[in-house]
Design a protein around this nucleic acid. Structure first.
Length: 104
DNA sequence: CCCCTGACTAGAA
DNA sequence: TTTCTAGCCAGGG
């Protein structure tokens, strides 16, 4: 019963909880975090929170298009790669082997 | 209460 | 493919 332990959590706390639940090698988008935190659509607020808050696994959060955080691409790339995440040209490589322009 | 900023997103050009 | 615009949300002054 009351499996929900969601006590009046502030936006910041809710987002932080979701972030800390992530495991090494896991990557999520701002929108996913916002929705998981109980604030769907607040993707922008999530980005702002990561920018103002420290101690959070911000590198595990990327944009919906796989883009990394502006100004932190090099650092985020190294962190993600160190966890086994494939990153290329400031972008998280998704299981998307279609349309690629280059070598089919 | 009002105004502005921002590590966003989806869609159009 | 890249660039721009409009819309949405929370925090801070």
């Amino acid at each position: 019963m009351t499996g929900d332990r969601v006590l009046v959590m502030d936006f910041s706390d809710a987002v932080a909880e979701v972030l800390f639940r992530l495991e090494p090698g896991d990557v999520v988008t701002y929108g996913e975090v916002a929705a998981e935190a109980g604030h769907p659509g607040a993707s922008r607020a999530v980005g702002n929170l990561l920018r103002r808050t420290e101690g959070l696994p911000w590198w595990r959060v990327v944009a919906s298009n796989g883009r990394l955080a502006p100004g932190h691409e090099p650092r985020q790339t190294e962190l993600l790669r160190s966890e086994g995440v494939a990153v290329e040209n400031g972008r998280v490589v998704v299981e998307n082997r279609a349309e690629r322009g280059g070598s089919p």
